[in-house]
Design a protein around this nucleic acid. Structure first.
Lengths: 202, 202
DNA sequence: ACTACTATCTATACATTGTTCAGATAAAAG
DNA sequence: CTTTTATCTGAACAATGTATAGATAGTAGT
């Protein structure tokens, strides 16, 4: 059976991006576990060995897909955040909610993506640059909490306790729900509990 | 090259348990992604196809390993909890802490186990029996929170907000730290924040 | 004790996979 | 136009998951 060739040039042009994009497509459908390097190459119309010019092994391609997803999630989050304007306490509270909801909705819509991002393929050594510091989602959270304090929606004495707490609650609940260990309908009320215990009243 | 045979009987006796136990051993070392059904069979001294009498495919074996780990974690948690006796508020607070700390410590000691448990291989449909209801870790948490209330360590009005919140914080922080997205040294202070925001004072 | 039956395991085979490596081809540089 | 470098191909290999047919052992019935 002859292999279907999409391409008509010997050189692809931007094979690295194509590999990531195609691997992303396959992961979206079947999850990262069933990703085949050969099938990715075949889809692009390139020989299996071509990928090894850009990635040392299959794991590296998976990781590249995963890390690109962090950007994608942050993009989505910032787009949704931008829809909520205003400097009132009400607006700040809505943005805070949106941070949690967008994280969750994105994960629910693409569970294979979420699972890849927090799988062993995307391990970070927590001391490198891929860390909290340049984590856009974390920066957005920090900014949002500052708004909550400055608008009086969050007591100043709770500020220091709310950052990591918010992050872990949002991620933890999402993770448990995506994994099927917690019912999705609980998510909203968990955010309620979080806000309540931080003293953010409706 | 002749295959080394550990076994001297045609029938193994309890091959299903042996498969899970051996797969567990390999997972502990190398993570679930690099688990080979053939190597597991070889280690036991059995042909590769023998496994298919007990598991429909490789994924099913992985899942079996994963689900057994939930039991293992609960066992460990209950052993540690049992060490803290007494009916005072102080004892209740210590037990509450222990719930969070044991979860974390277990995950840090065996990250490959933790990753398997919350990977796509151990997906639960959240409507089945493998759910919250018969989740021993969750039951222990419930009991512990009741103790906190009855000893006066936790205000009754916070009781309803503390269950899912505690669970998601503990799991979320652990998950982020195991994945390298958060520094381990933050864990203790996250538990502090949780207790603080729930009104559990030292 | 013999026979039929069922559960358990083996042997063999196959397609697919990740990966390597020598060489072909195209693009860039001189 | 030649040389050099980057990019990709082709063929090969060992390992993997899995299917199928048959062998072996334990079990139940007589």
């Amino acid at each position: 059976m002859p292999v279907a060739r999409v391409r008509d040039q010997y050189h692809h042009g931007d094979l690295e991006s194509a590999l990531i994009a195609t691997a992303r497509k396959f992961t979206k459908r079947n999850g990262i576990e069933h990703l085949s390097l050969r099938k990715v190459a075949q889809e692009i119309g390139v020989s299996p060995s071509a990928a090894y010019h850009y990635f040392p092994d299959r794991d590296a391609l998976m990781a590249a897909v995963g890390f690109s997803l962090f950007e994608e999630l942050a993009d989505y989050q910032e787009r949704e955040l931008a829809k909520i304007t205003g400097t009132t306490a009400k607006a700040a509270k809505e943005r805070y909610r949106a941070l949690g909801k967008t994280y969750f909705e994105w994960a629910i819509k693409e569970p294979h993506f979420f699972n890849l991002m927090f799988s062993e393929h995307c391990l970070v050594d927590s001391k490198s640059e891929e860390k909290r510091e340049d984590n856009r989602a974390f920066i957005n959270l920090t900014k949002c909490l500052d708004e909550l304090v400055s608008t009086g929606a969050l007591e100043e004495r709770m500020r220091g306790h709310s950052e990591l707490l918010s992050w872990t609650v949002v991620h933890g609940a999402t993770s448990l729900i995506v994994g099927g260990h917690l019912d999705p309908e609980n998510y909203e009320s968990i955010l309620d509990d979080l806000e309540f215990s931080l003293g953010i009243r409706k």
